[in-house]
Nucleic acid binder design. Structure first.
Lengths: 335, 335
DNA sequence: ATGCATTTGTAAATCGCTTTACCGGCTGGT
DNA sequence: ACCAGCCGGTAAAGCGATTTACAAATGCAT
């Protein structure tokens, strides 16, 4: 286990000083071909690779960005992370994944890492109730881009899905299939994604000629459990509803369970559209119609915005990425 | 954006030397309460946090381990990563996620990072065909633990699922339900997971009194596409088979698609058991019976083995973690 | 030959922390 | 009174790069 060669070793081997080699390597020095050749050969011979810790300490930069997400173990964020990583890698950046478990303390911790230049920038997603303190910490930092869910009072660049349009697409799909009595089961009532999805959904319903009505809406959390209970309530309280729009895959899962428990099938007794389309909904039976978030696109865009932020370019303060309705077979054609 | 305080600053504020503060912080010096108090206060006042790059450079350690997986975007590895991260975090270690996309060159890159002490250790999972060169690189390193899939010729500690028992459980479940004609659709023929799953499956079938037979087995890759085509072949070539054991969730997805295309339902015309249970199989219709891999346990165990490896303790050369049959409703009771 | 840029290159400080090697002073035993 | 040993603490040498400031050598025009 011999020690890896240092810049010094390379310099010795090439008969030069470390400074020269360093500057050559970093492009801040043009060397005559002969000298360059000597260095290249020395590097190859020794199999030299710069020590990243030393380099970071010295430069105060790490060529690494961080991605803070609630949980890796969530298809939505897993896909997001995969796309972000690929984009980062293509840009010569390393991507560190931090999972906050939605705990404020951990979120702050990661932001702190940014401040210490542990990473050069941070892509930040949170599901926890936005709070003033979080916003102010983020605003004190530069090189943060917020994604997926808004944080009140944050001035950093943000990248979101077009949630409102998602609601619109869902409502239209139901209406085109003849539905008139609707329900919505969303996530937390006070967060942007829930509000916007519902807003779009409701606007279309209210504007429909057919006398469509939004008979019920339930708010809770993006969890299977909430999907289960809210759907049970819905079925009890509004048995006449024929079209259900749920705010996330997890809620869908719970809804399907409850429905199945009552002998109901999506697309038969109750039509269902979900939001996200991160899980393998195409393999469900029936396949579930969904508003698909541009997950990969969010990841890639966030990385690119962050890159521009880091290099000091202008960036759009907020970008909305288009969603798409993926029609499968969970919406029944009425009449 | 003032510069963060350094150890020097703390030392000055406390009227001590940096060395003293450092040693106090690292526990290599016991100070009288009065002095300790001074340091603590200085730290609090300045909001000092050690610079990780400097610390790493100095110590040649990073308190960080890496997890190399083919893709974050795969529920199996996502869960594994989540569990590993939690365990690492509990042990005061950071976890860096590296995704190799199953490309040898990237795998080697990450191993190189380990050699440069960029991380203190590596948990390594690959699905690509094991090759001699990979094994030899790994064997040259210490502090690597290999998981999930074996790599020929590797001497590093390894952590696997008990694949063989998984096959046994699946076969028994089918047999108990009266099935006698079986098929297996696995992953790549020459990798450990496929071989062992099939081995256990076949052994039980061959040993059954009921004259059970394994009528067909197909090998390909762990992908939806392969599941689709292999199932089509199965249905064409062996329409009399009633019990299908598939080697992974992805294959299951493909199988379900093909079946649905032919108007067949799991647990009715064809009984199905899958391996992994990483996806939301409970929400499928019908819910799919599966051999569940102890994914989280693999992650946690790998972290702990690696920790012991790093600190130089003895570790088991290979550990097999128990799988479990999760009975749902995709296996029909015959007769 | 002279003067002036360029080219080619180096010395040395720096980043922030860890760690080794010491040191002066006090306590207590004899 | 003297030595041993401990206590409380420091100086200084790294760790492996980057970077600034400067120097020697070369080229080139006059």
């Amino acid at each position: 286990m011999p020690k890896p060669p240092s810049l010094q070793d390379v310099a010795n081997a090439a008969g030069l000083s470390p400074a020269t080699v360093s500057r050559y390597l970093n492009g801040s020095l043009n060397l005559p071909p002969a000298t360059a050749e000597r260095i290249d050969r020395a590097i190859a011979a020794l199999d030299y690779k710069p020590n990243p810790h030393a380099r970071r300490l010295s430069r105060g930069k790490s060529d690494t960005i961080g991605l803070v997400i609630p949980e890796i173990d969530n298809p939505f964020f897993a896909k997001l992370a995969a796309a972000a990583e690929r984009e980062a890698e293509a840009a010569g950046l390393a991507l560190m994944l931090f999972s906050s478990l939605n705990r404020r303390e951990r979120e702050l911790d990661y932001l702190e890492k940014l401040r210490r230049n542990f990473v050069d920038g941070l892509i930040f997603a949170t599901n926890s109730r936005a709070s003033e303190d979080l916003a102010s910490v983020i605003n004190d930092l530069k090189n943060v881009v917020v994604i997926d869910e808004d944080i009140d009072g944050v001035t950093a660049p943000r990248v979101f899905s077009d949630n409102d349009t998602g609601g619109v697409l869902a409502a239209r799909c139901f209406i085109e299939n003849g539905h008139t009595r609707f329900a919505f089961i969303g996530g937390p009532e006070d967060i942007m994604s829930t509000r916007e999805r519902l807003a779009g959904f409701r606007r279309v319903i209210d504007g429909a000629k057919s006398g469509a009505t939004l008979n019920a809406s339930y708010f809770g959390s993006y969890s299977v459990e909430f999907g289960r209970t809210a759907t049970a309530r819905l079925l009890d309280e509004h048995p006449d509803v024929t079209a259900l729009f749920v705010g996330a895959d997890e809620i869908l899962f719970g809804a399907l369970e409850t429905m199945r428990g009552r002998g109901m099938t999506a697309g038969r007794e109750l039509s269902v559209i979900t939001f996200d389309d991160a899980g393998p909904l195409a393999f469900f039976d029936p396949p579930i119609t969904a508003v698909r978030q541009p997950i990969e696109e969010i990841g890639r865009t966030a990385v690119n915005v962050l890159r521009r932020l880091i290099e000091g370019s202008e960036v759009e303060p907020v970008t909305h990425l288009p969603v798409e309705l993926v029609v499968r077979r969970s919406v029944r054609r009425l009449s």
